[in-house]
Computed example of a mutant assay.
Amino acid sequence: MPKIIGASLHEHREQTRLRLFDALSRLMAEQGFDAITLAQIAAEAGVGRTAVYNHFSDKESLLLGFITYETEQYAVALQKALDDIDDPVERLRTYVRQQVELASSHHVTPGPELRTVLSRGTQQRMREHVVVVERILRGILTAGIESGVFPEQDLDVTVPLVNACLSGRGVAEDAAGRERALEQTEAFVLRAVGATAPVRA
């Protein structure tokens, strides 16, 4: 009988899922998703291959589970950073910073390589998870438009444009370079949405 991880069966299942997610993340950092096998994932996670099938029917369903988990964690951290801010411009600045900084520790957005190897149904379901983050930005911009801080605009166009600008945005590792990049990105996004509040120098 396989060893139980954690104090209960529920905790065991959750810990196993997290091990599989961590393993998939590490392997995807080293090679393309299409080259990874379930046997590799199981070995990397330190679990038996049958344990993978107890949670996921195939590699794509494992990826979807991973993306769902990452999106939920990402959205919670993003919303927490916004909770105590009322001003739409400051909320947008915070959103920009969080998107850039959180992206370095989360794997929410599938890259071009994934879109070439996943089924259309899986691609669509992955897109649904991106909508969770887009909804937060839409709320910020809607409030800004209603208060007159941002001009009227088509958010179906603006929201994906802003997020496209922020996705995969690398920043310098040194503190000064990082701060400069973040300030310039903030200023660019504020100009893009037509913010009437002064942009920081």
Rank of each mutant, 00 (worst) to 15 (best):
E44W: 14
A51W: 12
E30P: 10
A39E: 13
A39H: 13
F56E: 02
A75T: 14
R91F: 09
L63D: 06
I67N: 05
K59H: 15
G65C: 04
R19S: 08
S57E: 09
H55T: 07
D87C: 00
E70L: 04
R19A: 07
G48C: 06
F56A: 00
E60P: 08
I67D: 00
V89C: 05
R93T: 00
T37V: 12
T68P: 10
Q40I: 12
Y53S: 04
T50H: 15
D83K: 03
F33G: 05
A29I: 14
A43R: 01
F33M: 10
L64M: 01
E44D: 08
T50F: 15
L20G: 02
Q40F: 14
E60Q: 03
L82W: 09
A51D: 07
E90Y: 05
D34M: 09
Q31W: 14
Y74V: 08
P88A: 00
N54P: 08
Q73H: 04
Y69C: 00
L64W: 04
I85H: 04
Q31F: 13
D83I: 09
A45W: 12
V52W: 10
Q40C: 08
G46A: 03
G46N: 04
D83W: 14
M28T: 09
Y69D: 00
F66C: 00
A75L: 15
E44K: 02
D34F: 13
L62G: 02
L92S: 01
S25F: 13
I41C: 07
E90I: 05
E30Y: 06
V47P: 05
D87S: 04
E44C: 11
L63V: 01
T50P: 15
T71D: 09
D34Y: 12
V89M: 07
A29E: 15
F33C: 11
S57R: 05
Q40R: 06
F66W: 06
T37G: 13
Q40K: 05
L63C: 02
F56W: 11
F56D: 01
R19W: 13
V47A: 01
V89F: 15
A39S: 11
F66H: 04
T68I: 06
D84P: 02
S57G: 08
E90L: 01
D86T: 01
G65Q: 01
G46S: 03
Q79G: 15
I85K: 00
Q40Y: 14
L62I: 08
K80R: 15
D22N: 07
L82E: 05
L27R: 05
S25W: 12
D83V: 07
V52C: 01
I41E: 05
R26C: 11
